Simulated scan of single mutants.
Amino acid sequence: MAHTKLKVCVVVTGVGWTVLLVYVMSSLKWQPGDITDTQRRSAHTSLADNVPLARAAKSHVLLGELIEAAKMNSGNQSKVNTLSSVTSNVSSTQNSGKTVKIVISGNADTLIGVTSAMNSVVSNTKSSVRFYITLPKIVIPDFRKWVLQTKLHRVNYTIRPHDPQMPKGKPHFAKIYLQSIFPDLDGRFIYLDSDVIVQGDVSELIDVDIRSSHLGAFSEECNSGSKRFNLAKPRYSTHINLQHPKLRGFKIKPKSCTFNTDVFVADMNVWKSSNVSLLLMDWVNSSKNDPIYGLEPEADEAEAAMLIVMYNRVSPLPQLWHVGDLGATSGGGYSKQFIKKAKLLHWNGHFKPWSRRTAFVESWTRYYIPDPDKKHRPVKTFA
């Protein structure tokens, strides 16, 4: 009989702990990010925004007090061991699930694209996301206000000014100086230009296959489904100045296909061990007297440097994860059904969805968040 009562007590105790854990975890789900970031923003947000944090913190305290009380009152060491096991499971549950790191660079002209891209990412994933945003120093206050006063206030991000070596008006040069801009960035990351909308789950993109000897996953432009490349394929001969003195001895095949350098997945630890950032900066500096880029109108030092350093060392991105050239013409070269299935849309080219009439602008406006100060607005036609 005593044995039966003991079993009942154990079952009741287990049910009680289960209920408590469910309450704790449900409270924690309200927490938008790490506590440090939320506390830092709390001075600018309403009291209502801090309620979830208070609930989570209260749950932590309550759980700790109950654990300590159980340890003090329990005369059975096995119960303490069981309790320790339960608390360990709570900790592992809270820390399970990787954080997807996403780098985006912009400036005053493209800030509207940066916030839209961020919104598209968080709207289509349940994974934890950390943004690494780099902007000109003068634009950073506008960005902070835009985030704090809109639905983006719950996102986690690190903001850094552009590297002083970057040419003005060319935010895409940030990919050359990533290591100096974000010295704390490590592991895998996704780089996105500001003229991108993500319709898929970035947790899938971050796990794309990258060969051990490769420096990242990129979209090969010869495989683009755009009508832009029906006649002329993008080759190294047009994007790179193969007659540059430093390229003597390099066995680059002129007819090799180029890859798009505006959207990619890479590992910063691999870049550091391979001195990728130093090599990229060295090639950019080599272009001061004799350009390293070719005759392609949109080619520049940043693209050329990446094409040279990563020649034959890139893995492919799945086609749906980079549907580009939407800004090359106002009409586009894809069907509406294909655009709907696409996981990432890229308006590379002169036609940006916030400044000119462009293809599939409705896919972009779905994630557009108005600037609270109304300083950065799309053209009236698309507002």
Results as ranks from 00 to 15, higher is better:
Asp207Gln: 14
Val208Gly: 05
Val208Phe: 03
Val208Tyr: 03
Val208Trp: 05
Asp209Tyr: 09
Ile210Phe: 04
Ile210Ala: 11
Ile210Pro: 03
Arg211Pro: 00
Arg211Asp: 14
Ser212Trp: 03
Ser213Asn: 13
Ser213Thr: 07
Ser213Ile: 01
Ser213Cys: 07
Ser213Glu: 15
His214Tyr: 04
Leu215Trp: 01
Gly216Lys: 05
Ala217Ser: 14
Ala217Val: 02
Ala217Arg: 08
Ala217Pro: 02
Ala217Lys: 08
Phe218Thr: 02
Phe218Val: 09
Glu220Trp: 07
Glu220Arg: 14
Glu221Gly: 04
Glu221Cys: 05
Cys222Ser: 11
Asn223Arg: 14
Asn223Tyr: 06
Ser224His: 04
Ser224Val: 00
Gly225Ile: 00
Gly225Asp: 10
Ser226Pro: 00
Ser226Gln: 06
Lys227Ser: 13
Lys227Thr: 08
Lys227Pro: 00
Arg228Ser: 09
Arg228Tyr: 08
Arg228Ile: 06
Phe229His: 14
Phe229Thr: 04
Phe229Cys: 07
Phe229Ser: 08
Phe229Arg: 14
Phe229Asn: 11
Phe229Gly: 03
Asn230Thr: 09
Asn230Pro: 00
Asn230Leu: 15
Leu231Val: 07
Leu231His: 11
Leu231Ala: 15
Leu231Tyr: 08
Leu231Arg: 14
Ala232Thr: 07
Pro234Ser: 08
Pro234Val: 01
Tyr236Phe: 13
Tyr236Thr: 01
Tyr236Lys: 11
Thr238Ser: 15
Thr238Cys: 11
His239Trp: 15
Asn241Asp: 13
Asn241Ala: 12
Leu242Arg: 10
Leu242Thr: 02
Leu242Pro: 02
His244Ser: 13
Lys246Leu: 15
Lys246Pro: 00
Lys246Arg: 15
Leu247Ser: 10
Leu247Pro: 04
Leu247Phe: 03
Leu247Tyr: 07
Arg248Trp: 05
Arg248Tyr: 06
Arg248Lys: 15
Gly249Met: 12
Phe250Leu: 15
Lys251Phe: 01
Ile252Trp: 05
Ile252Asn: 10
Ile252Pro: 05
Ile252Thr: 02
Ile252Asp: 06
Lys253Leu: 13
Pro254Tyr: 08
Pro254His: 11
Lys255Asn: 14
Cys257Val: 02
Phe259Cys: 07
Phe259Ala: 09
Phe259Asn: 07
Asn260Pro: 01
Asn260Val: 02
Thr261Val: 13
Asp262Gly: 14
Asp262Ile: 03
Asp262Pro: 00
Asp262Glu: 14
Asp262Gln: 15
Val263Ala: 06
Val263His: 07
Val265Leu: 09
Val265Asp: 09
Val265Thr: 03
Ala266Met: 05
Asp267Gln: 09
Asp267Val: 01
Met268Thr: 00
Met268Ser: 09
Asn269His: 04
Asn269Phe: 01
Val270Leu: 09
Val270Asp: 11
Val270Lys: 12
Trp271Tyr: 10
Trp271Leu: 07
Trp271Phe: 06
Lys272Thr: 03
Lys272Asp: 10
Ser274Thr: 06
Asn275Met: 12
Asn275Trp: 05
Val276Arg: 09
Val276Asp: 04
Leu278Met: 10
Leu278Tyr: 01
Leu279Lys: 15
Leu279Asn: 12
Leu279Asp: 11
Leu280Asn: 08
Asp282Arg: 12
Val284Arg: 11
Val284Ser: 11
Asn285Leu: 10
Ser286Thr: 01
Ser287Cys: 06
Ser287Met: 08
Ser287Trp: 03
Lys288Pro: 00
Lys288Thr: 06
